[in-house]
């Protein structure tokens, strides 16, 4: 297997970076923590890597709104490198705050780009204040959407169990057309559900997301974002009920990192 190199992008207010590095390394990749200034100043290059991870946290304090300021910085300062990375078919994952960033840059779901995909995509969905009105840290079940095109989640066929920790995670569309297009292109990846895969109100859908969506990908399935934290469930003792014998050796989130590394190793 070819060595897979992951860049975990950080900036002021990033956290979850160390556990994201740990999860990728557990899956066999080599992961570097890189500050965005190192990219924008040309000290490090994105194209040296096969996977870009934007971890959770509160980039720039989530001031103004979650992920907005980092999204603006990426679009204005490193967009050429990021766009090329995506155009090359490399993998991008945004977790929690990283998902908020990907949505606010328009990279997810990647609609409204100019002619033949030229130019940057425009924002068409957002992650808005939870219906509960507060930050919520709890465990949720995620039902994989049948036939979804995401390369990170292939082989996941039954609900997985991950924690969320966010205040702005309610996914909403700008209009019905976007919703229909996302459905038709199988870009919905995970839906909040109960353990059996059935949808339901709070706390099953913890934030009020439209269509119960917890994670989406772009049309190629290679850019993926989700609100829950797969990197916080790669070990058995991270499961909230491992003392009740409910955990297996690897946590449910591990498959996402394993899939990404395996795909990158073979295809990129």
């Amino acid at each position: 297997m070819k060595d897979v190199k992951v860049i975990v992008l950080r900036t002021a207010g990033t956290n979850c970076d160390k556990e994201t590095v740990f999860a990728f390394e557990l899956a066999g990749a080599k992961a570097d923590l890189v500050h965005i200034n190192e990219i924008s100043r040309g000290e490090k290059k994105l194209d040296r890597y096969q996977i870009l991870a934007i971890p959770g946290g509160f980039s720039y304090g989530d001031d103004i709104s979650a992920g907005r300021v980092l999204a603006v910085e990426m679009m204005n300062k490193i967009s050429a490198q990021v766009d090329k990375f995506v155009a090359d078919g490399k993998l991008v994952i945004g977790i929690c705050n990283g998902f908020q960033v990907l949505v606010k840059t328009g990279l997810l779901p990647g609609f409204n780009a100019g002619e033949a995909g030229s130019g940057a995509a425009k924002q068409s969905v957002t992650l808005f204040d939870n219906d509960s009105g507060k930050f919520d840290c709890r465990w949720v079940h995620l039902n994989p959407v049948e036939g979804n095109v995401c390369v990170f989640t292939q082989g996941i066929e039954t609900p997985i169990y991950l924690p969320i920790a966010h205040g702005e995670g309610k996914l909403i569309f700008d209009n019905e057309k976007t919703r229909d297009k996302l459905r038709a292109a199988k870009q919905g990846v995970f839906k909040y559900s109960d353990a059996a895969g059935k949808p339901g109100p709070y706390p099953i859908n913890p934030n009020g997301s439209e269509d119960d969506l917890a994670g989406i990908c772009n049309a190629t399935g290679r850019v993926f974002g989700l609100m829950p934290h797969p990197e916080r469930h790669v070990l058995s003792t991270q499961h909230p009920r491992w003392t009740r014998g409910e955990a297996s050796e690897r946590g449910d989130g591990f498959a996402i990192f394993r899939n990404a590394v395996a795909f990158a190793s073979m295809e990129l």
Binding site: I64, R68, K104, Q123, T126, F128
Partner: peptide, 9 residues
């Protein structure tokens, strides 16, 4: 439009 507000919400 790009920094202070969210075009969707």
């Amino acid at each position: 439009s790009e920094l202070l507000s969210d075009p969707v919400s």
